[in-house]
Design a protein around this nucleic acid. Structure first.
Lengths: 131, 131
DNA sequence: CTTGACCTTCCAGTAACTGTAAGCTCCATA
DNA sequence: TATGGAGCTTACAGTTACTGGAAGGTCAAG
């Protein structure tokens, strides 16, 4: 199977698959006599795994660790769970931060007339001297 | 005033101030005879403005637009409000996405025993053939 | 006159791709 | 057989917003 078909089946752009190979996230694919990358079904499984993990926000490094665990028959599920928990914590931090920023900005937006005049509580807030 | 003091007063690392100058977000600072950047109080105001806007998640480009609006006596507050609203929408999108990812992953975590055995619903989910 | 704290510039690295260019290969049709 | 287009190849640049580090200049204190 060539990369285009693998891209379709895995949900990842061909470009991205090559990129993953270039950074060592996946093993280099075999090649046809013409130099085209040749894939098998198990490669698609791996790429789908990666795609799922990435879609849940895991970093490439984390995905790499997850791939290792996936292939480790002696893994402890505790290791996977721990990795996942840490990721959820990280997402929680980001959610909290975003909500805080959104809240502050929304308050300012509510106070802004939003008309043709220059007076603007948003600008004023950014420009004010001290907290 | 030299860059170190400005860094302290503005809440931005000296390195970042130089970076902002290099990309044209702020005007090049004056120089002392020794070649050191020389700042005035109004520069600190500008940098604090930038710091505030950045801390609310606005991109450098958006901050640049906000700076222009700040210095535009003929601005309409509607312009500022619109920019801010779009940014809130963007944050909302991110929050929703993060919450969705978190929710999915949390469900999987709850199902995982987290012990010494390899069986793991998280890995299983990532590895499963089809949705 | 020598530290040490600051300052300077420039280059590289980060995360995870994406875009673009120049150039093969393969298959089908005229 | 020639040609055209789809799909493949590599390599390099660009994105975002900095941050780290190296090599070297400046200034005030001791």
């Amino acid at each position: 199977m060539k990369i285009g078909q693998v891209a379709t089946k895995s949900g990842l752009p061909a470009k991205t698959i090559r990129y993953y190979e270039s950074i060592g996230l996946i093993d280099p694919a075999g090649r046809t006599s013409a130099g085209y990358r040749a894939y098998e079904d198990k490669d698609i499984q791996t790429l789908r795994f990666i795609q799922r993990a990435r879609s849940l926000g895991f970093s490439i490094n984390e995905v790499s660790a997850l791939l290792t665990l996936w292939n480790d028959r002696n893994r402890a599920s505790a290791q996977v769970k721990e990795l996942a928990k840490r990721h959820v914590e990280e997402m929680d931090r980001k959610i909290t931060e975003l909500q805080s920023m959104k809240s502050t900005l929304s308050d300012l937006i509510d106070k802004c007339q939003g008309d043709h005049r220059p007076d603007c509580p948003i600008i004023d807030n950014f420009a004010k001297k001290k907290l």
